[in-house]
Design a protein around this nucleic acid. Structure first.
Length: 351
DNA sequence: GAGGCGTGGGT
DNA sequence: TACCCAAGCCT
């Protein structure tokens, strides 16, 4: 459905609004200009399920350290993971590095078609369309959560998420534009982030509220409908804070894939639905283990974890594959937030 | 195709 | 406080 074949007014209104009100973001070119594809790609990967405010410092740090995709490709994966630590969804960082290697091998140029972009690691339907539209001005509509919401409201699509996603992906083609497709995409995202928000949409300030079916029906705030949320199960773990005389703490490299994959972690029992009453059988060393008062809570996407901690000392020699770090040095390594939180709990308690 | 996969900010 | 949920991808 080309925009020339239907109502063009909302696209024109959107672009006029964007020219005046576009958010200034570190990875974004001014309206009417294209951004560096490397910047677009890096930001889009970081922005997957992650807020603009959170991404800002990470984007700056990565760009300073690795100014080009070739530089990123040449980096050690562990360095990439260390700099990604805290951002979450660590498969993104592993795929980021993989993708950089592929792109560097083809001369540092990102492919310029939607299909080829989507073949790269970590790039799915949304990100391929986003890079295509924003970096290369391809007439594509990257359908993210913002554009799903704007589409559901503008066209009054009343089905419930996530089942309605395919319909929204189709109907979002309403916003396909041969003219400035990248700016149209970014305008829709700004609109979704600042005006057409999930709760309390500010329809009076919306540049396309004329023509918005949900607004005219008074149901904008109720769309898109969401299925009832599932309860989040609780799991329990005991972690071991083992220190040497030099003050360094034992960390272990986690399995390559899965939860917190390829990152560093404290030695831990399995994370189970019942509290473990004999955790010391999982301890990384013999020691006079002492329980730290209070547990540490940490919520993941699909469960909540309550962590008990045992502290112990050892004088044993370093084993192969072990990583011993001072707590102050955690920030320079690939230590996820969960373990930093546990560490702070232990150290803060000692004073 | 449904579920695994993090975290911090907003309300 | 306790939710909600954010520029999704992969299996």
């Amino acid at each position: 459905m080309a925009n020339s074949q239907h109502d063009f007014a909302p696209l024109a209104a959107l672009l006029t609004w964007y020219d005046k009100s576009a958010r200034v973001l570190p990875w974004r070119a001014r309206p009417g200009r294209r951004s560096d594809p490397y910047h677009v790609w890096l930001s889009e990967i970081m922005l997957q399920q992650t807020t603009v405010a959170t991404v800002g410092p990470y984007f700056a740090k990565f760009l300073k350290r690795w100014p080009t995709v070739e530089a990123l490709a040449a980096a050690d994966l562990d360095q990439v993971l260390a700099n990604w630590a805290g951002l979450g969804y660590y498969a993104r960082a592993r795929n980021l590095h993989k993708c950089a290697v592929v792109v560097a091998a083809r001369g540092g140029d990102f492919p310029r078609t939607e299909t080829e972009l989507q073949e790269l690691p970590g790039i799915g339907p949304y990100t391929a369309a986003a890079i295509g539209a924003i970096a290369f001005d391809l007439a594509l509509v990257p359908v993210d959560g913002n554009i799903e919401r704007v589409t559901a409201r503008y066209l009054a699509v009343t089905g419930a998420m996530p089942g309605v996603k395919p319909e929204l992906r189709d109907k979002a083609q309403f916003f396909k534009s041969d003219k400035r497709p990248g700016d149209v995409a970014q305008a829709l995202m700004d609109l979704g982030a600042t005006i057409c928000t999930p709760r309390n949409p500010d329809c009076e300030r919306c540049p396309i509220h004329v023509g918005c079916k949900a607004q005219s029906q008074g149901i904008a705030a109720d769309l898109p409908k969401r299925a009832a949320k599932k309860p989040r199960p609780v799991r329990y773990a005991t972690m071991f804070w083992l220190t040497r005389v030099d003050g360094k703490v034992l960390l272990q490299k986690r399995p390559e894939k899965g939860l917190l994959g390829s990152m560093l972690g404290l030695p831990t029992t399995d994370w189970t639905e019942e509290e473990d009453n004999a955790p010391e059988s999982c301890a990384p060393a013999k020691s006079k283990w002492q329980a730290v008062p209070e547990t540490v809570g940490h919520t993941f996407t699909h469960f909540h974890l309550e962590v008990s901690v045992l502290t112990g000392k050892t004088s044993r020699k370093e084993k192969a594959g072990e990583i011993w770090l001072l707590h102050e040095d955690f920030k320079n390594h690939a230590v996820p937030t969960l373990f930093r939180k546990v560490a702070k709990h232990v150290v803060g308690r000692k004073g």
